[in-house]
Simulated assay, not measured.
Amino acid sequence: MKAKISITEQNAEIEASQEEVSEFLEKVIPNFVLEGGGILSDTVRFWRWKNQINIIKKVKSIVENSKLDKKQVPLKILLPIMENSSLEEEELIQNKWANILANAITASKDITPNYAEILKELSVLEVVILDKLFDESNKESDYEKRKQLQFSKQKISEIFKLSSEQADLIIENLYRLNLCQAPAGHGIAVGQYKFALRTTEVFEFTTFGYYFVQACKWE
């Protein structure tokens, strides 16, 4: 037969659990995020709202200065942009969110729904590196030649003062997001089975990556 737990014991257990959680959260979450009981507060919503306002002001300035016609943005594009951009504090990436939305509003560039999912997963350093790759790629006007351009991990490491391990982490993340890729090759064969060689020492911009970075720019 199961022992019955009194209301007093239940309340004591709840209070102990709440205190334990609150003590933990206080160490890992900024104070302004928490209410007295350690619960995420309305301040978070206000903080996200402020981020959205900052980004929308940037968009308004871009669009009005462009003198271009405005159009309604499909919800499947608009909502992910508004939702994810509200979590961004870094001004550099806020500018990217503003550019994507401005491009969508003016139809200056094709914006796809997955762009928001990709941008939210990029760090400031990764965004800066992508801009560098884009600028180098943009020097080549011929598409077939441009997509064959290769970039060196060593060069990226030197420019951005990265260790080999740090550079690998960044390049592998760009591979994961399909923004960059290892050079195409025939790989090696073991008997009748062929294996593709995967490296981060040299890499290429994907066509998708090129157009994603372009969509994050206002030109």
Results as ranks from 00 to 15, higher is better:
M1F: 09
K4L: 05
I5E: 15
S6I: 04
S6A: 09
I7R: 15
T8Q: 15
I14A: 07
I14S: 05
E15H: 13
A16W: 07
E20V: 10
V21T: 09
V21A: 13
S22P: 01
P30E: 15
V33N: 05
V33Q: 08
L34A: 05
E35A: 12
L40W: 10
S41K: 02
S41R: 03
S41C: 03
D42M: 08
T43F: 12
R45T: 03
F46G: 00
R48D: 00
K50H: 07
I55C: 12
I55W: 11
K58G: 00
K58N: 05
V59G: 03
I62M: 14
V63I: 13
E64I: 00
E64G: 00
K67A: 10
L68Q: 14
K70I: 15
K70D: 02
K70M: 15
Q72M: 12
Q72E: 14
K76T: 06
I77Y: 00
I77V: 14
L78D: 05
P80I: 04
E83K: 13
N84C: 04
N84R: 13
E88P: 06
E91R: 13
I100H: 04
L101R: 10
A104T: 08
T106W: 02
A107M: 11
A107G: 02
K109F: 09
I111A: 04
Y115F: 14
L119R: 01
K120Y: 04
L122Q: 11
L122P: 05
V124Q: 07
D131G: 10
K132H: 13
L133Y: 11
L133G: 05
E136N: 07
S137Y: 05
N138F: 11
N138V: 01
N138A: 03
E140W: 01
S141W: 06
D142P: 01
Y143N: 09
L149C: 04
L149N: 13
S152W: 02
S152K: 10
Q154R: 12
I156P: 11
S157A: 14
S157F: 01
I159L: 10
I159R: 12
I159W: 13
I159N: 14
K161G: 00
K161T: 08
K161H: 12
L162C: 05
S163N: 10
E165Q: 09
E165H: 06
L169M: 07
I170Q: 15
I170Y: 15
R176N: 14
L177S: 08
L177G: 04
N178F: 00
N178D: 10
C180Y: 01
A182E: 14
G185H: 08
G185K: 03
H186Y: 00
G187V: 02
I188T: 05
K194C: 02
F195Q: 00
L197S: 07
T199Q: 15
T200A: 02
V202P: 01
E204G: 01
F205E: 02
Q214G: 00
W218L: 09
E219K: 14
